[in-house]
Design a protein around this nucleic acid. Structure first.
Lengths: 210, 210, 210, 210
DNA sequence: AATGAATGAGCCTTCATTCAT
DNA sequence: CATGAATGAAGGCTCATTCAT
């Protein structure tokens, strides 16, 4: 599945990229504040620094903006994560580092994550799969890391266990952003990371299929 | 914090209750399908079995409907859960039962849960706290159960650990509904419960504060 | 082919009729002045004596107004004609009377006729056939009148001749409205009628298929 | 009345002519399909083979395009007719030939005729007279032909009769195009020509002012 | 002379809410 | 209490036209 194309009337691809970045930046700010539905296209245009007419030279419908925003956030998250996955050695220690890094990225991008988490469901049947696929790819990155530990003999897990653990990690990262109204009152980021990681790794170690 | 009052023009309280139940039922069906924003008040009235004029005899704004819906879903979830918490003995086994029961309730009410978590964010600054408070109450029920195990000496956990575990359980239950597009393809409900519970309990046991 | 239904949100049929008549009256005035495309829905609403919101309680799209207008004009023209056709005896004299009457109706309704012929082409593929069918019905009324003369032995014409003559009459009537910018400078209505009728009847008489 | 000037920014007259021809060709195609109002200037530019910016180097407003199109169609029709009028001898036979030729031209150019007939009315008060004048010139060509027959003693008609007959011929030619949805189902072009010509000539002959 | 990105007035349509009956 | 017709602010989107390059 390739990236879904959002049609632009403007030909100059470099310009399209530039304008879309302005657009995404403006839109994210607004979506954070008021959500997708309560944000008007005019507001998006203004926040992006151009007129409503110009906005529509770069998209076809308001939903395109949402798609572009979600797509861009996923890309940003994944790009940031990538670097921590590469040097991964298939040891418990490297798994720990990966989680640590992931949680910190989620903390940094918590506004973006929140937007995506709350607004993605407003995407049409048409666009949603492209975004969900990206989500699965990220979960897959955690699976691979865990699986490598299994291959190395550091862990003893069934495939189903590997998958559920990857999901749990992924969701706990998001949790820090979308339940921040309570979690960030109870814990510092470091505390949260330590508590969750300890709990998880003890759980994993105790769950060997024996 | 008392329940937020939604003003009705109609005096007969029995009638108000009856009409609101019709309303909530109709609205949930619609919100499931198209979300809060895409549902019109006319549609809600029709689905509730009365006219738009009548609808507005029992609420003040469209958002009131959303509040009523969220509030009612929370009540339903909590009521269902309550029974499993009452006989709780403060043993690991009863914790296991509580989790098992909770996940099954989430499975049964997954549509409602979905609606609530996707749409609650559309509540105004005014109404949101009432809903969040209900959520915290539910998390609190898990905390109590765990805490009783600690008091009984079955577990050895700090207060912060107790709290994070309660949140994890709570979120993993939601996840089953929220991420059903992927989880329910990978696991049956029973598998999911078993995997998550094992992982969690192993984690808990391994995390004694020592 | 039944009349094409234009959906209204309002239930009270009597009211729908009343409002639509207001609407048609207002719209015709505007269409006369500026044509369909240059007239806005707000202008139509205002000219009809109600708000834009109310307008849309009685139609679905702007094009519905056009259809309603065209449909109503056809009905008016046909209703007016009907009376002159009924007592028709199948004589040349009664044919003369029918033509005379038709031209006079076209003169009276020339604004409406103009609107209809200039704007009908803006109807969608969907609505056009309903209007064209009405036109054919009117042409058919002339055909019947001529055919009766043939049956009576007053005229000797092939079916193809009957049809072309009916069309010619029909179009010459429209012409009086359509080309009024020139014809009405050259002739009075009575002159026009006499000239055209004489020419036509001589042509018919001379065209006997022998 | 001279030809209405449409201002161009470009000086090179040869180029102006060339570009305008491209433009007219493109526009006619589009107007045929969707009418003047539903066609955008961008579409016209694209269909003409140049950019929107270039389009506006050769016209001032969208309406200019319509004027140019109408003007050009009239010129084309008139140019084609011209040749059949020149050798006209003032006999009934040559009148017959002129009509025959005219109807055939109308058949060939029926798309263009339709466009003109349906869209000319969208011209502004300013431009319309120039187009109507051309129409009158064409009617005048028929008048001349008939008048010559009168002068030759072949026909005995008043001036008013001459004029109405010229109009009838003119309109019957257009009729073949603008009522093609019905006429071209009933008749071949040759049948149509024969029926109309016979009817008309019999009418003319029978209408001698005696 | 040609290009095409930018503009913003203005269009059609929706829908939450009111209020007379 | 119930009804549903009326309202108009507001929203998404288009497109004729301009102007810097």
């Amino acid at each position: 599945m390739k990236k879904r194309e959002v049609q632009a009337s403007v030909k100059d691809e470099r310009l399209v990229l530039k304008r879309r970045n302005q657009m995404i930046k403006g839109a994210v700010t607004l979506f954070k504040e008021k959500g997708f539905h309560r944000t008007t296209t005019r507001e998006i245009a203004r926040a992006s620094g151009f007129s409503i007419g110009t906005l529509y030279e770069y998209i076809r419908t308001k939903e395109d903006v949402l798609y572009l925003v979600c797509d861009s956030i996923y890309d940003e998250v994944r790009d940031q994560l990538q670097q921590s996955f590469d040097p991964n050695q298939g040891t418990l220690e490297s798994l720990r580092l990966v989680i640590d890094y992931y949680f910190k990225v989620m903390d940094e991008l918590q506004d973006e994550v929140l937007v995506m988490y709350q607004e993605a469901k407003s995407l049409s049947k048409d666009a949603l799969p492209y975004v969900l696929k990206k989500e699965l790819e990220m979960v897959g990155m955690f699976e691979d890391t865990i699986r490598r530990c299994v291959e190395n003999g550091e862990l003893d897990l069934t495939e189903k266990q590997v998958k559920i653990i990857a999901h749990d990690i992924f969701v706990q990262g998001q949790m820090w952003a979308f339940r921040r109204w309570v979690l960030q009152k109870l814990y510092t980021l470091d505390e949260y990371i330590e508590l969750q990681t300890d709990l998880l790794l003890e759980g994993i170690k105790g769950s060997g299929s024996k």
